[in-house]
Structures are given as C-alpha cells and as structure tokens.
Design a protein around this nucleic acid. Structure first.
Lengths: 338, 338
DNA sequence: CCGTTAAGAGTTAACGCTAACATAACGCTA
DNA sequence: TAGCGTTATGTTAGCGTTAACTCTTAACGG
C-alpha cells in the first residue's frame, strides 16, 4: 500500500506537507502542492479515510433514510433523489442509502458510521426514527414532509399551495363544480392537500356537491373505486374536475372513467399530484403538481453539510419550497366541454 | 467519546480482551465476553470503525452500482434490490448506492473506500466501468446481465429460458401464429430474448409471418408503434400472441390494441418481460416473466463477501438463476378466442 | 541593518483499535 | 503433584493520518 510517507520521501518533504497538499484549507506554497499532487498521482497515492477519520473524528459518510423505499411516489423518486444528493455532496463523501424500517441498531449503524443524516420522510410513522437520531445529537435534516418541530431542520414542499395553484388553474379554465379524492387519512400530506383544495373552494366560491369528495389511500385501486362513486352522481351534480391526492389515484380514476365510458377530459377533468413517471404516459397525460423534491434534496444536503461543519443556519428551521404545476392533457377548458 | 479503554478499565480487563469480546471469532470465555458486552452497552460504547479499519485494512463498505438508476425496469427495481442487499449483508457493513454514470474518480471513490463492488448491470455500456473495477483488483460481482468473461463473478437470469417458458405456455394455450416486439438491438438481453423466442418457434414449429416481428427499444411508445405495425397484417396472418421484450413495450402494445379496437386477450394475446409494477395494474393484467433479481442480489452479496474474505468460490464464475412465469390475464387459450 | 512578522515547512505525538507475541491460569495425565 | 498442553488474558507496537507546536526563512518598516 502506498502511503503518505512514500509521497513525502519522493517529494523530499515531510508527511505533514503532503497532508497539507491534500487539504484545501492548509497553507502551503502552490508550487509545492502541485509537485506533491503530481507525484501522488504518479504513484497512485490516495489518502486512507480510516486513518484520516481516526484523527479528524469524521466518517465522510452521509446517511439517507427513506420511509419505505418501495412506496416512493414516482418511479424515479428514489433514484433521482440519490443522484441529486450525490451532486450536492463533496466527492469525498459516501452516501449510505437505507430504509428506515430495516434499521436494527441505530447506535451501531448511524451514530458510529455517519457524520449526518437526511431523512426523506413520507409519514408520521417516521417520527420515532427521527427522534432517535435527534437524541443521538447527530446532524439531521428532514425533507419531503413538513415536520412540526422548530429544533429540527426541515425542508418541505408547499403541498397546500400546490393544490391551490392547480385548482386556481382549473378555475381559470372555467370549472366551478369540483371534487376531490383524498389521500390516506391522518397523513400530513393528505391534510395539506385537502386544505389547499378547501381554500381554493372558499376563495373561488366553488361548488362541492355531496359525494364529490371521496377518501382514497393513495393507491391506484382506491382511485378507481373513488371515481366510480363520484360518477354515480347525476351528471348535472357531478364535478367537472376532480383533484386526486396523488398520481396513482388519478390514474385509477382515469381507468374508472374509461370503464364507465366517461371521456377525460371531454366530459370530466382529472388532476393528480407528484408527477410520477406514468403521469406523462397515461391517456390522457395527467396534469399534475410536481413536488420540488430535487430542490429539497439539494438544499437538504447543503444544510446538512453546514450542520456537520458546525456552521449555523438561518434561524427558522422550516424551509418551504414551491411546487410546480405540470400542465398536460387531463384538464380541459369548461367552454370546450362536450 | 467512550473508547475501548474505558470499557477495559471498568471491566478490569485489558483492551485486547474487550476487543476480543466484540470480535466473534476470538477465543474468550463466554462469561467474560458477556460481562464486557454488558458494561459496553451500559456506558454506550460502540467500536470505532476508523480505528478498526486502520488496522484491519477494511472499510466495511460495499458499493452497489447501477447502470443508470432512473431506468430500472420496474418501479421497485432499485428499492427492492437495496433492501435485499442489506438483508444479505452483515450488520456492520454499509451499502453505498451509486450510479455508474456519475462516478468521477474511481480511485478515490471505489478503491479507497469500498471492500468490494456489486454492479447491477443493464447493458454493455457498463463494461468500461466493470473493467476499471477489475483492474483495481477489488472484489467484484456483476449481476442482472450475462457477462461473457470467465474471470468475473457473474450472476444472471436465464432470459432465454424465461422467454421459452412463456412461449411454451402460449403454445399449450393453443397458439400457433406468433409475433414478437424486440428490445434495443445489440443489448444482450434483446439477443437472448429473441433467441428464446426463436428456439420456441423451432421446437414447436410455430408460424411467424413476415411483419410479425418488430424492433422496439424497450419503451412504451416503441411498443405502441410496433403493435400498430403488427395490427396492419390481415387478421388471418396476424399472430395470435405477441411476446414483448419487456413490460413497458407490452403496455404500449396493449394501448395500441385498445386504440385500434382490438381486444386483448380476446382477439390477440400479449406477453411481457420484467413483472414491473404496472404489469399487474394494466388492463388486462400482463402475463409476464419475472427475473430472479432478488435471488441474484442475495447470491451476489454472498459471493462478494466470500471474495472479500478471500474464500474461493465455485470454479465456474457464471451463475445462472431461473426466472419465473407470472400468469395473469393477457394471454387467452386459443379455443376461447372470439 | 536590526527587529518584527508572517509564510512555509518540519517534528512529534496521538487518534482507537487489533495482530502478534508473551504470559498466566487451568485441567488433565501419569 | 510435577509436567504438559490448552485455553484465556495481558503487553507491546504499529496501522496512516493530522493537530499542535516549533523552527526557518524571507519580507519589510523604521
């Protein structure tokens, strides 16, 4: 194994100088650094992270924990978060990807091997884990879900605003009678999306007939089921646009419409939330709200790194990022309705 | 920070004895070990991996590299592989999940920080990376794709066999005129699936009319396009079953049939490959071939660990696992055809 | 031209752990 | 009960790096 000693000998300098050449902030003459770096490259020296970490007390590992990896909203949820996280992370950091559910020994896994932790949280059930990490005193950032704790750095998307924007768009298209298929009751995301819907209804004096709001569980089949119920309404009471709490639900709703012979968007408009892979592939392609998940990830890593370095962050631990409305084909202007 | 020294002092033993208590294979009296472990737990001692690794030359990190994380065949491709990998990995190992494309410095990232590497390969384009790792001399296992190199441990699924099984099933259902939508030309997977198809045709003396085999590119739209072509054939020449090189293609094909008013499976049967999430959700639900990806992962990790420990593996580096035929609704017995 | 300062480089010790060797304790046989 | 092999534990050194400190040299003002 080629060590810092070998480089030092060849370069005719001390070990420390070599060490300095590899550590950005150190004072060392540019020329010396360059010579050392050249020699190191030539003989294939790379610093040993175990030795380095032993003295600096660092692990150069950031852990990223998912609520439940299989349930990511979109097909690329997991992968695009991971890729984005790497981009925001310095080259010398490793990203350890984990499923919260499968963490057995938080002491052995987290405390001892990671400099900090990002939790990509999908539900309240993650709080246990989050507070265990917090208790460890490890740098921690929770993203993807609003966390009501001023002591924990939290980056979330403004779901309420996203739904409101989507509904406002529908109103601009002339829709007045509206409906919704909700997410799993109790989930913060469900609550916020419902609130966004309600606020839009209030602000625009929209009509919500009984039966126009159904409870779903974020699954395709629940969307299908819910839409069947909505379609039971007589046509003149039926909403002209249905906002679905996520894309899977919306695709289920689309399917129910197709089965019932109700054309989308000609006879009824449908909106989703998430912008999953199949949102663009569905027929008609889904108009939906895209969470700023990549921006959340980038910001999350940035903040985590600052926390790791002991820097202070902005006073308010809640960072809320704006979602984006993705307009496709599943909403039609009301004047154009058949 | 609480170190091995603190435990030693409290337990009235030497540091080495404490070290032994934490290392399974060491000789130490059970009673002593238990006392030490108890004390360690009480004062919250956990071994420092940097220190441990410095002397043992280990990193306790396994890297898993994906061709291109966003393109996983099924929605759960990435997540289920990661979860499965963790299950096969000892608790004290970390899993570093990476995208091959985004590896900048293989020396800094891989050589220096990982004990071994699993490559979940999807295409020939990964070979560059694979051979770079091999050149590093690091323990390496390639899974998910057949790799024609006797020097590299390789775990793959038998795609050819999978397609053949699927076709045999179709033949048993009475199908004689068959067609196929192929994958991206040049990909090993495309070639093998085509060969499986061809072998089934030969073995069962099936009829393949001109135009019944189309080239796709594994995308939904290519499947749609290809099926449109196939449906141009006069009904009596048209295949009664079309095997699609993957599920996305098959779903595209389904869509084309729907658009053309051709009912599946009543008028034409369709099969896919992958068993992706939407295979079960499509209408009709897709009969498809499921790759043994989880078994590949488990075996891959097991073999990698042996390689890391310096154990020898079975002589033949090619391990081929059997796929599974998932029978759903998209294939109908020919006697039942309308 | 001396004294002060700062930049650049060197010396030394320590980080927490385990391997290798050394020693002690134990249990058995003759 | 001496002698031996075996099992259990202790002692010592070193893994590769950086932090803290020291030393050298050049620059500069008065």
């Amino acid at each position: 194994m080629v060590t810092i000693k070998d480089v030092a000998k060849l370069a005719g300098v001390s070990m420390t100088t070599v060490s300095r050449a590899f550590n950005e902030k150190a004072v060392i003459k540019d020329k010396t650094r360059q010579q050392i770096l050249d020699i190191a490259k030539r003989i294939g020296y790379v610093p040993d992270y175990n030795a380095r970490g032993l003295v600096t007390k660092k692990k150069f590992v950031v852990g990223i924990f998912f609520s439940s990896m299989g349930d990511g909203t979109s097909r690329s949820f997991l992968s695009s978060i991971i890729s984005t996280a790497y981009e925001a992370l310095p080259d010398n950091y490793l990203l350890s990807v984990n499923d919260i559910r499968s963490v057995k020994d938080i002491n052995g896994l987290v405390r001892n091997r990671m400099d900090g932790v990002i939790v990509v949280s999908q539900s309240d059930r993650d709080n246990d884990f989050i507070y265990q990490v917090k208790a460890l005193g490890l740098p921690l950032v929770v993203i993807n879900r609003f966390l009501n704790d001023p002591d924990i750095r939290n980056i979330s998307g403004d779901d309420l605003r996203g739904v409101k924007d989507a509904m406002t768009y529908a109103v601009k298209q002339g829709h007045q009678r509206v409906g919704m298929i909700e997410g799993i009751p109790g989930f913060t995301s469900s609550t916020q999306r419902r609130q966004g819907f309600d606020q839009a209804v209030l602000a625009n004096q929209l009509i919500v007939n009984p039966g126009a709001i159904q409870i779903g569980d974020y699954s395709l089949t629940s969307g299908q089921q819910a839409m069947i119920e909505i379609l039971r309404l007589p046509k003149e009471q039926r909403p002209t646009v249905v906002f679905c709490a996520n894309d899977d639900t919306a695709i289920g709703a689309l399917r129910a419409c197709y089965a019932a012979g109700v054309r989308v968007p000609n006879e009824i408009s449908v909106m989703g939330f998430d912008d999953s892979y199949y949102a663009s592939m569905s027929v008609p392609a889904l108009t939906t709200v895209r969470k700023p998940i990549l921006a959340m990830t980038t910001r999350g890593i940035e903040d985590l790194l600052k926390l790791i370095d002991g820097d202070t962050l902005s006073a308010d631990n809640h960072v809320i990022l704006e979602p984006e409305l993705i307009i496709r084909e599943s909403v039609q202007a009301i004047s154009a309705l058949d």
